[in-house]
């Protein structure tokens, strides 16, 4: 397969379907469960994020209304914690370790390869919503440096071209996430 066939980069600037055809049922159910809890904001946000993938404006409005809170307060919480996302995320989250050991072992090059393959930078998601790149600090496997994780799988001792192969493999075979 030719390299540039791997990722189809149609220009989709339009609103992702989950936002355009927002169905609040799941959100309402989650909020209902936590209705009488104090300090329920974080679990509610976690669950709704799990259900919808990310936290978009209409969803946040809905949560705010359900929880009788201000959407601004909720957005404040969302932007405070790294675990919450306000943009769509890829099916596969590629975490490239940029800790010292991995850096020394050339993890910077691996990030570049992700960019070459999928046209994304740190924190970005490619347009077909398959891959998200996140540069992270030491993930505690320095012995295996340079290390990356794709979702829950860890890959260590990576040579740049091995990494490229793994990425291509994901893009072609689309394993269950």
């Amino acid at each position: 397969m030719a390299e540039n066939e791997v990722v189809e980069t149609e220009e989709i600037e339009e609103i992702p379907d989950i936002e355009a055809n927002f169905d609040p049922t799941a959100c309402d159910e989650i909020c209902e469960q936590y209705k009488d809890w104090k300090g329920a904001t974080i679990p509610v946000l976690q669950k709704t994020q799990d259900a919808y993938g990310y936290l978009f404006p209409a969803l946040v409005e809905r949560i705010a209304e359900n929880m009788n809170m201000s959407p601004h307060t909720i957005y404040g919480v969302i932007t405070f914690y790294a675990q919450f996302y306000t943009k769509p995320r890829g099916k596969y989250i590629i975490r490239v370790c940029r800790g010292t050991a991995c850096h020394v072992q050339g993890s910077g090059r691996i990030s570049e390869i992700v960019g070459e393959e999928f046209q994304i930078k740190d924190g970005e998601t490619c347009k077909d919503l398959l891959f998200t790149l996140e540069e992270v600090s030491c993930i505690g496997a320095c012995g295996l440096a340079p290390v990356i994780m794709i979702n829950n799988k860890t890959y260590g001792n990576l040579k740049p071209e091995d990494a490229r192969k793994i990425f291509k493999d994901y893009a072609t075979n689309l394993p269950e996430a």
Binding site: V60, E61, S70, H72, T73, Y75, T79, F80
Partner: peptide
């Protein structure tokens, strides 16, 4: 806006050096 007005029309956003005052999205 929170404790007196109870409207919470503005909030702290982000964290660390990116912290600022603003509105939802």
């Amino acid at each position: 806006c929170d404790e007196v007005v109870n409207i919470q029309a503005i909030s702290f956003l982000n964290r660390g050096t990116d912290t600022m005052i603003g509105t939802s999205f």
